[in-house]
Design a protein around this nucleic acid. Structure first.
Lengths: 204, 204
DNA sequence: GGTATATGTAAACGCTGTTGACCTGTCAAA
DNA sequence: TTTGACAGGTCAACAGCGTTTACATATACC
């Protein structure tokens, strides 16, 4: 439908209920997702917490997954690790981020959603954002013919570390010397970025 | 208790009995999971396909996830890549397997379940088997004080490649020269296994 | 035969995300 | 003022899920 924002002559107080309700749903969902994860929080629970009717979630966000998408967009779970910072420090930043996550660093929402990472909704949303927030910009940043391959490999290492953290609690990784581990991840990332086509250039 | 089925007589009856029922459920579930994935197949659908009451799934397998676990145990989705083969070829085998999966190699059930990898049930089951079929034996195989760290890193690379394949279809990875990609994955795995130096004494 | 015990059945339970029909209050036009 | 449109909100229901409970039936042993 048409946005009712322009009813009559420049009424700047349109649909006060709409925005307020949206915000309340968003706030409640974020709170609950943070404290309980995604799958464990039902639509009715969010609505109840927000003091709002269940149907309004679907009215305003289309679906529960749509609500999650909106939260992630606003919250920026995926930090702009690529664009923000000096180019030569890119792998350094990524490695630090990756190892940091091993040690439980990140926003509460990030950490909570990590535990829900198996949920199909979350998976779908994450996949979209991973591609648009990590692989794609990284490929653009790297440039060159094999940029997407390099970017995919980097993403693989980062995702893999994250996954192992969830699979086995990463007890071994977390117990290891942090700086040493970071150096190793950094080396892996840089190996991912090495040019192809140099025969015999593989590691000594 | 046991009832001989092979009594020669016409056995066109729906084959009641514990073992027969179990087998029919397993066969139907495997067929359906293979063709439609895990999440898309409901308990009732399996039961209907097997010509069996829904409750029997829970009676014999505890839950839908239990049924999946049983199928995976029987089917061996996780190949014995570690134990089977020469020790010095381990990383080679793992790299080949990883790149092979990129190119759609694997059993139909494997490929189908890959698409359902987001499901919480599958995640849980996979995690258990990943630890017991990859990380743990690899750590044992490697030995040494940092064995679990090395094993976790190897698992991270392997899982990461698999994940990227699902996230973005791995179009870039699949389009790249297969042998070259395999060499790179191999190099990554071997880097994962390289000894750490003394903590804090990281050299250039 | 009688009876304990497997095995199979039917119907519900509680839950999920989602939807359609129905109010309600506001506001512009007549 | 009356009217009517309509965004915003409510309510109950829908169809599906995995699972469980109470019951019926077939089998095996004493």
């Amino acid at each position: 439908m048409e946005r009712p924002d322009e009813t009559g002559g420049g009424a700047q107080a349109p649909a006060r209920g709409r925005e307020a309700t949206r915000e309340r749903i968003l706030a409640s969902a974020k709170t609950l997702f943070t404290s309980e994860g995604y799958g464990a929080v039902s639509s009715r629970k969010i609505a109840s917490h927000a003091g709002v009717n269940v149907a309004l979630i679907n009215r305003y966000f289309g679906s529960k997954a749509g609500l999650l998408t909106e939260i992630l967009r606003a919250d920026g779970v995926f930090p702009r690790l690529i664009e923000d910072g000096a180019p030569e420090d890119l792998t350094e930043r990524l490695a630090e981020h990756s190892v940091g996550r091993l040690h439980g660093e990140g926003t509460p929402l990030q950490l909570s959603l990590d535990d829900s990472a198996g949920d199909p909704d979350l998976q779908t949303v994450y996949q979209g954002r991973l591609k648009s927030a990590l692989i794609d910009p990284l490929a653009v940043y790297l440039g060159g013919p094999d940029a997407r391959v390099h970017a995919s490999l980097v993403a693989a290492v980062l995702l893999g570390v994250g996954r192992v953290r969830r699979v086995e609690g990463a007890t071994a990784l977390r117990a290891h010397d942090r700086e040493q581990l970071k150096e190793r991840v950094l080396a892996l990332l840089e190996l991912c970025l090495e040019d192809f086509g140099e025969p015999g250039a593989e590691g000594p």
